[in-house]
Design a protein around this nucleic acid. Structure first.
Lengths: 113, 113
DNA sequence: TTCGCATATGAGTATTTACTCATATATATT
DNA sequence: AATATATATGAGTAAATACTCATATGCGAA
């Protein structure tokens, strides 16, 4: 439990989690959406993954991250709380809009026709 | 939200919260129950209070802390999660037992007849 | 007023954490 | 094999955090 709270006790990580709430994403997309450095994104994703909140898989050189279903199941009340509160957080809509813009750019394999 | 997670991202604070789940307590009682230094208890309680999780009141030289009702109302899902998970945590039963022992000792005014 | 008790706070120390730049590693293309 | 792209990881730096000891502050009793 404390490990989960530690992972969540950081603004950048909550922003990442907020945009991952909607759909899985690739590192390069998160970078672009949140205007964060690649290495910083990677580290935060690793922290969230290590605490059991995210899952990831690789497709060629691309790494995709998504909220872990197991996490959602094992921590239903917390997940409910997060979904609600993340949508209310100050950066949420701005970040979401930015993500819509990013989806118009071909960033990684999954976005290519 | 992040402030709340920051307050909860610490083992000692979760232990304090776990025993405060049952009933309000005085600083000196928490000290005794959890075998922590007075100053450390005081600091953790202040952190939990500043994040909105706890409320406190003074009675003479004694300071009592309890879980804030406002916090419970505003963060129902999270509180539900905490109650469940705190009871499952490794130290919970040991700490609870220790508290039962402490209640046999007269520590502060409220315990005196 | 002085003394005793409870607790908050100052200060020091060690550890942890967030971020960056650089680069190692993994995968694909030529 | 060389080159390009994506991402994880090493290393350095600054800031934050947890804990302790000491003591300031607040309250009550004598």
């Amino acid at each position: 439990m404390v490990e989960i709270f530690k992972a969540l006790a950081e603004e950048s990580r909550l922003r990442i989690l907020a945009i991952l709430m909607e759909d899985e994403m690739c590192v390069c997309e998160i970078e672009e959406c949140l205007k964060m450095t690649q290495s910083n994104v990677s580290r935060h994703l690793t922290a969230l993954k290590n605490s059991g909140i995210l899952d990831s898989y690789k497709k060629a050189q691309w790494a995709y991250y998504k909220v872990s279903n197991k996490f959602k199941e094992d921590n239903q009340d917390l997940w409910l709380y997060l979904v609600k509160k993340l949508k209310e957080s100050p950066n949420y809509h701005k970040d979401l809009d930015e993500c819509q813009n990013c989806k118009r750019i071909d960033l990684c394999d999954v976005r290519k026709p």
